[in-house]
Design a protein around this nucleic acid. Structure first.
Lengths: 291, 291
DNA sequence: AACCAATAGTGTATGCTATACACAGTTTCG
DNA sequence: CGAAACTGTGTATAGCATACACTATTGGTT
């Protein structure tokens, strides 16, 4: 054994597998503090604290800082979004930001909501619910692709800000003439939302690659490589069969002449899936018409 | 204005360290290096480097380290998953880990795939594709909820390891007797996968809250609060109407006597959406039966 | 058997990160 | 006017990933 620290007893080689689970049990010992935390985050996102009457006037605004943060993330990705980078862009010191946001998390919460923006307003006359939902889905997907860094953040358990709600409102608007009950509406909203979020991952990945200057082919090659590892692997008979039956992997612009059984492009795949989801919703609506 | 620095003498980045990286303008100026990076990550995930014949024998294995990393994340969350924490758990120094993984990202890639595990094998006889897909969806959801930290990581653009492929293989297996073409199969796989991933966010958030010791009610209250902000807000007329028409927000175990138009529990909502998606798929299968 | 190259784990150092804290200048109320 | 409340700055700290050099170990080669 190489130069081990003599600091005594390491678990002897036999204890390899046996882990002792002592010490800190994950919870900060405070179940309510976590809830209070979430509530605080939500408040910071929704409420502007009252401007105090005494003291210096602030030179920046929360809005300025959020815009700077967004532009850093847009240009350089989430990893480059540091308090220093934001402050530098504005010409202030890092610590100045803490007069506006108590911590980075609060700034991120605000930036995410702002970056999400509001859904585009309908330009023409209202169309069928099905068409309206499709517009919504494309818009949401486009929004996510235009800011790939949004998908790098765990949406899970983040507070929902005004813009987030506005996307949901717009989807409800699209579903307005389906005649569904409030309960069904909420669940249909969840279905569409879930599909669009889940199905945009690949497109977002491509968008990120593009924004880093990677040509589409290189990206497709990189993404396809993992999948292709299944081909001669006995663990994946069905995957393997499908991959060899098709001509290639995912591609953005179809590099092949369209054939009868064509592998769909990424966009076509999204569209295909969306149609299935909408079919499912439609079936429910139709079957409910009578009641 | 308070002590504003003259904008000229802002500390420029290179004042400090001698070996300062070029100010990275998002793209590492190298479009191919990004692709090469992805490829490297993928290789590290799939291939074990050859054991050298000379030199000391390693005391740990990659497997040991991955297991330690997983158990840290399980117990204390992703934020606690530091190189130090993993090394400490194994009784080694931080730097020892770098003999097995070139960096933290590689360890994370391996840990994610390992933590995902393989889908449960079917115990009984094969059921209808619809039932099989439902089993798959529940299993995947359960897997994600049992390790909420997986959802904190950006799946986007991470390499896909053996276990990830095995989940896809299992879903193809579930869809086996649908008679769909290879192309359609791949797209159906994407639909189901997208829905399940996208629709599990809320459940994962609850799982995380639980693992931190937060009672369900507190969590529901915290999550519901944001939604309820819509209620008296003119920007969200439809959301507001729905929320006031229902009795409450999301709840895990229905706290109310079941009514005719009941707001579904979280699990019921997931199930409801899944049925819609499956309906949509079924419709496609039926309509294709003739061709 | 003696040697040496390759390796494992350690110790230490570096730089980046968020952020706590105290200070100096600024504004407004009493 | 003076104190209170505030803004932005400078400095300090702790945690993090990780580069580098060192020592002990190992097995192939002579």
């Amino acid at each position: 054994m190489a130069g081990r620290t003599g600091q005594g007893d390491r678990p002897s080689p036999e204890t390899k597998g046996g882990r002792r689970r002592e010490d800190l049990p994950q919870a900060p010992a405070n179940p309510e503090s976590a809830a209070r935390d979430l509530q605080k985050r939500s408040e910071l996102l929704w409420e502007d604290p009252p401007r105090p009457s005494r003291g210096s006037k602030p030179t920046m605004s929360r809005e300025d800082i959020v815009q700077a943060a967004i532009s850093v993330a847009d240009q350089s990705g989430l990893a480059a979004l540091t308090m220093y980078a934001v402050a530098e862009r504005l010409g202030f010191t890092t610590m100045a930001l803490y007069r506006y946001f108590p911590n980075k998390e609060a700034l991120l919460d605000a930036s995410v909501d702002a970056a999400m923006g509001t859904p585009p307003r309908r330009s023409g006359p209202r169309e069928s619910w099905r068409q309206e939902v499709k517009h919504w889905a494309y818009a949401k997907r486009a929004m996510l692709c235009s800011r790939p860094w949004l998908a790098e953040l765990p949406f899970v358990a983040a507070p929902h800000g005004p813009n987030w709600l506005s996307w949901h409102e717009a989807l409800l608007e699209a579903l307005a003439d389906t005649g569904l009950s409030p309960e069904d509406l909420m669940d249909m909203l969840s279905v569409v939302h879930a599909y669009v979020s889940g199905a945009s991952d690949t497109a977002i990945s491509l968008a990120r690659a593009r924004s880093r200057g990677m040509p589409d082919e290189l990206w497709a090659q990189a993404v396809g490589r993992d999948l292709c590892r299944a081909i001669h692997d006995l663990r994946y008979p069905r995957l393997s069969a499908i991959l060899t039956s098709q001509s290639g992997g995912i591609s953005d612009a179809s590099p092949l002449p369209v054939r009868a059984g064509r592998p769909r492009t990424m966009e076509e795949g999204f569209d295909f899936g969306l149609e299935r989801v909408l079919d499912g919703i439609e079936r429910y609506i139709d079957s409910n018409e009578g009641s």
